[in-house]
């Protein structure tokens, strides 16, 4: 691929599996041969780093005062000056390699005050385009095939930056009534952004996850989502899998499991299928 594709996971609701989705879709894209960069904007707790086994390494860097510049710095209006002074290593130093074949720009505690700082920028377009400017100018030249961005589970200045920069949303959903409402709200939000700023942000992938098909209700919600989002639905749902939970706690994804259970294998296949259609959709296919 010649152009870097981008997508952001977003749903204005916590606990829907956004971070797990970014980690697994990212590794799945890597398995399919793509060069992948993940960016964690989801909050100072740094969960994506935990999924990919680099959390402790980065916490050490933070404790030793070695984590500057960081992901919060790239939103600062001084970033171009900093990048110019530091040269190529300005962006390279933000990126950690992981054992699962994907690279990561991890979350930093500075994200906590970032939303308020962005709120001080009067011009809305300027406020919401800081990340896009960073990706355009500093990340795209690095030649990644795909950049996936994990966003906070709420609508704020940081998540708007992610949506604006990606132009494309992955919405991980659980099978319940609140998710359906939130997915509707997301679609309304995307329409509002389109009207207000003349920027199109597509809903590229609705990925049902943690699905327990032993319950009839889950099947019904699944069917309702398929009807509601026929163009954005992932080809397969990700089943609930204890292996995924365990893998997360051990600092890796289910792809790194040496002996995956049946549900973990189904989940892996679902992520690989989702990754494949995601790339097709991001390429306009």
């Amino acid at each position: 691929m010649s152009e870097t594709l981008r997508a952001a996971t977003f749903l204005d609701k916590g606990g829907t599996g956004k971070t797990t989705t970014v980690a697994h879709l990212g590794v799945a894209l890597g398995e399919l041969g793509h060069d992948v960069l993940l960016i964690d904007l989801a909050g100072k707790q740094g969960d994506l780093g935990k999924h990919l086994g680099v959390f402790d390494e980065y916490q050490d860097q933070i404790a030793n005062d070695e984590a500057w510049p960081n992901i919060a710095t790239v939103f600062d209006d001084q970033w171009p000056t900093i990048a110019e002074k530091l040269g190529d290593k300005a962006t390279a130093d933000l990126i950690l390699s992981t054992d699962e074949g994907v690279d990561l720009i991890p979350a930093h505690p500075g994200l906590d005050s970032l939303d308020a700082e962005l709120g001080n920028i009067d011009d809305a377009r300027e406020r919401y385009t800081r990340l896009e400017a960073f990706l355009d100018e500093y990340v795209d030249p690095l030649g990644y095939d795909v950049v996936l961005i994990d966003l906070p589970g709420l609508t704020n200045n940081v998540s708007y930056n992610g949506l604006w920069a990606a132009h494309s949303v992955i919405a991980p959903v659980e099978m319940g009534p609140f998710e359906a409402e939130q997915a509707d709200a997301l679609r309304r939000d995307l329409d509002k952004i389109r009207e207000a700023f003349d920027v199109t942000i597509d809903l590229s992938l609705v990925l049902p996850n943690k699905v327990d098909t032993r319950t009839k209700l889950a099947e019904e919600y699944l069917e309702a989502f398929r009807e509601e989002y026929p163009e954005a639905m992932a080809p397969e749902y990700v089943p609930y899998s204890q292996d995924i939970r365990n893998a997360t706690e051990q600092g890796h994804t289910a792809f790194a499991h040496p002996d995956p259970s049946a549900t973990a294998s189904v989940a892996q296949a679902a992520y690989l299928d989702a990754a494949e259609v995601l790339v097709e959709r991001l390429q306009g296919g």
């Binding site: 100072k44 500057w68 510049p69 919060a72 710095t73 600062d76 001084q78 970033w79 000056t81 900093i82 002074k85 530091l86 505690p109 500075g110 994200l111 906590d112 005050s113 970032l114 308020a116 700082e117």
Partner: peptide, 14 residues
């Protein structure tokens, strides 16, 4: 200059 930039842009959590 870089030290000043760092001081101005290095934020901790809230």
């Amino acid at each position: 200059d870089l030290d000043q930039l760092r001081e101005a842009t290095d934020h901790g959590d809230r």
